[in-house]
């Protein structure tokens, strides 16, 4: 392979990636517009969304609470020890509000849901494509963006927002136990510290961030699943591509949110 053809292949690869990204974002913005348009919502959409919330959040709830309590307590316990060591006790509130509520809660919830529901949705779509079920819907004039994408995206967005908030509340509550043990802090002092550190915009930031995570960890698996080939062998490939891109999307959203927060 000479230098020119090598450069050509690099260029072709880059253009291919760009086209793929362009298509993905184009479709994402089309789906997002439908998300905002009331006419996209049918009683059927709500019914499917409710079922999806059941699978995504309610079925996961027990495990999620255990993970929140165990992981949250360990994390907060260790960090409070470090805070005490370096003498920054006065900043417990800022740490819990800034790190746990704004960063850890959405990302932990997102990772858990992406691993569980994101992969399931991706495989479901790819199998539907291979079984020609997507063609069947198209034949009957059922728009897959409205029927398949919209309710699932809405459901996961709602689930991520609610579970993130639940995670933040559980971890903050376990922080109360550790503050009492490590700093001999009363309930009143602790809640006062946390409340003073929480700014009202944190609620908005958390909801927007969790919703953005929810959108992309559902949209990307749906997109890659629905674009799989007709062979059953295309299913694992579609799941693999979808999930890798979900991971990339999570990192990008996290970076963007950090940039937005500190700018």
């Amino acid at each position: 392979m000479n230098a020119v053809s090598w450069i050509e292949s690099v260029g072709a690869g880059a253009l291919g990636r760009w086209r793929e990204l362009h298509q993905l974002l184009g479709f994402a913005s089309a789906v997002f517009r439908r998300l905002l348009s009331p006419s996209s919502y049918r009683p059927l959409t709500v019914e499917i969304a409710v079922t999806q919330i059941y699978f995504t959040a309610v079925q996961l709830l027990g495990f999620f609470i255990v993970v929140s309590v165990v992981f949250g307590s360990l994390f907060i316990g260790m960090t409070l020890f470090v805070i005490k060591e370096i003498g920054l006790t006065g900043y417990i509130g800022d740490f819990i509000a800034g790190v746990v509520v704004l960063e850890m809660a959405p990302i932990m919830t997102t990772l858990l849901i992406a691993l569980r529901s994101g992969s399931a949705i991706n495989a479901e779509m790819a199998v539907m494509k291979a079984n020609r079920e997507l063609d069947a819907l198209e034949a009957f004039g059922v728009d897959i963006a409205n029927y398949l994408f919209l309710p699932r995206i809405v459901a996961v967005m709602v689930s991520v927002v609610l579970l993130s908030a639940l995670f933040a509340i559980i971890v903050t509550a376990s922080g109360l136990v550790f503050s009492a043990i490590i700093f001999d802090m009363s309930f009143n002092t602790y809640t006062e510290l946390i409340a003073k550190a929480i700014e009202y915009r944190y609620f908005t930031i958390m909801v927007v961030k969790s919703a953005a995570f929810g959108f992309f960890i559902t949209f990307i698996p749906l997109y890659y699943g629905s674009r799989a080939g007709y062979q059953l062998t295309a299913v694992p490939v579609a799941v693999l591509r979808g999930m890798v891109n979900v991971f990339i999307a999570i990192i990008i959203i996290e970076v963007l949110s950090l940039v937005a927060r500190f700018l």
């Binding site: 409710v50 919330i53 309610v58 609610l162």
Partner: peptide
């Protein structure tokens, strides 16, 4: 299923 989802949403929002 709907009852469970409703209960989950209502209680989490209340919390």
């Amino acid at each position: 299923l709907q009852y469970k989802v409703g209960l989950f949403i209502v209680s989490t929002v209340a919390l």
